[in-house]
Write a protein that binds this DNA or RNA. Sequence first.
DNA 1: TGACATTATGACACCGGTGTCAGGAATTTA
DNA 2: TAAATTCCTGACACCGGTGTCATAATGTCA
Lengths: 339, 339
Amino acid sequence: MKGKATSFDIAHYAGVSQSTVSRALRNSHLVNEETRKRVFDIAKKLNYKVDKNASNLRTQQSSTLALLLFEDPTSDESQINPFFLAMLGSITRACAKEGYDLLVSFQSASADWQADYEDSHRADGIILLGYGDYIDYQPKFNTLLEQNTKFVCWGATVDNRPDLTVCCDNYGGGKLAAEHFIAHSRTDCAFIGDASDHSPEFFSRFQGFKDELLANNVKINERKTANAISTEESGYHATRSLIANNIKFNALFAASDLIAIGAIRALKEANINVPKDVAVVGFDNIAIASYVNPPLTTIEQNTTIAGQMLVENLLKLIRGEDVQSTLLPPVLISRKSSS
Amino acid sequence: MKGKATSFDIAHYAGVSQSTVSRALRNSHLVNEETRKRVFDIAKKLNYKVDKNASNLRTQQSSTLALLLFEDPTSDESQINPFFLAMLGSITRACAKEGYDLLVSFQSASADWQADYEDSHRADGIILLGYGDYIDYQPKFNTLLEQNTKFVCWGATVDNRPDLTVCCDNYGGGKLAAEHFIAHSRTDCAFIGDASDHSPEFFSRFQGFKDELLANNVKINERKTANAISTEESGYHATRSLIANNIKFNALFAASDLIAIGAIRALKEANINVPKDVAVVGFDNIAIASYVNPPLTTIEQNTTIAGQMLVENLLKLIRGEDVQSTLLPPVLISRKSSS
DNA sequence: TGACATTATGACACCGGTGTCAGGAATTTA
DNA sequence: TAAATTCCTGACACCGGTGTCATAATGTCA
């Protein structure tokens, strides 16, 4: 036998037509039990596998989802944000559970990525994953919508289509951080992340934080906030600049764990003790968080559930079913960095 | 325009045949420059994308590689080994650079995974990635070889086919660890990993470690070794049992960083200071390693290069070119856990 | 026994490209 | 001017399945 076996080969050996083989292999009730068994036996002997390309071409679908990972363009090329890696893991698992393959691809935010996967019939739908300048994405979202491409995204909101987004309740997460500080009587708070609305996730976290503080009659001073993207380096530098400007605080909420880890490094360097002098709370609960010194208190986003929801919602969209907007509840994980 | 545009649509608007469109889009020199331009313009206007299924079916290849990730079946379901996640990231990048898509799939070691991807024409080749009981895989490797499936694997050796393996020089890495201890006059050494040959990577690390010690007239006592799989928990328990058995040592080589991190936890709990009482060296240099307390000295495996080599070698195999066995040089990263 | 439903199968068009072959038009050569 | 060559294009088979339709064989009922 040269090359791979086809359904015609099976048909030949089984003494039936190729149509019957195709039906038999897909367990059509239209085929006789005895014939079906014979076909299966021969298929197994020939190590036959359905040609996905032929099958997909005919049925116009692919049983494949595409995951586009957008990296913060300014972040270090060699390291991928561990939060996204965790998401990738859970998305992969969720896909497998649903019988879908997963195509993974890293993208830069600026690239001309829209639709390529779905238009070329490589995937039935797309999952978009990334932090960053989501504002720039809206035109691309519109293109996707126009072309009726099925997609869901993590974090970013799509105008008028809340159902396409799965994200953590960032606002609620920010409130949790504030509650925690208040419970520990740390009311001189700083925030590192992005207090502008350029990065909507960070912005929501800050809003929730600020609002909950206000609800407890605590005001956060604008000067005690600094911008940072989600890297350790960026958190380190932002914190250093606060310290250099002689800004005082006894509690620090970082918009992500990586920022928090960088912040702790900067604090240590300045001989500021964590948590005695400054309590630190991060966001994400990446794997590293429990290993740093001191172990990091953080707002957990459950990546397992998040990945499942992204996949489930996307499959619903593909099947034409209704999808609800999905907000995942954050949970505060208390460790030593804040007590 | 209902549905997606096909090459026939373009042909219609351009007033040429579908054949010409196909040729034009693939920049065949057989097509007139003017015609080519017209076709491109219309394709762009219609947002045309080549149907991958049709194209793959005809050309009998897929421009896709499959990555099968084997997880240690005994490890915690919810957390993926960060070393593999790093590899996944670099493999993804390498694929993108070569113009290939990447299908990612998690597998349990026991499953009937062989060949499914390549036989069904979903991928042109397969990358196998995992620690673990590679011995069990040999029959499956044989099946793959028989079917002429193109594959490469990380770590595991395939009988008589060294060219199919990309791996770190584990033996050399073990020697580096030994050299380091000797340079710091820590000669009472323990090893945690797997000193049996069940796990060939760990075994090689141990051999290199042992041999280099011997070359310096230091003998490692068998009682000072303990088995562990590559998880923090396993490293923790293995170390606890050493301590419980009252085994003394002033240097500890762990076969992976996760094991080392667990070991440090156990040592701390027993009030054994790292590095003063016991110097610890791990293996892998995962991202967490530099954040733990104390920061972990470790033998780095360069995942960026490893991913590139896996992809490059696999593509060579697919193209029918010769491939050399690939051993990557490990590098010792010195941090506070060992000095 | 004829009308009709049920079951199992084969023939065939089709999905959307790619590659081969034949041939017309334009250009060069004898 | 006829022959040869080059350039460009269209017709068509093909990749390997899936789905529709026609039909033969068998069973059911009046």
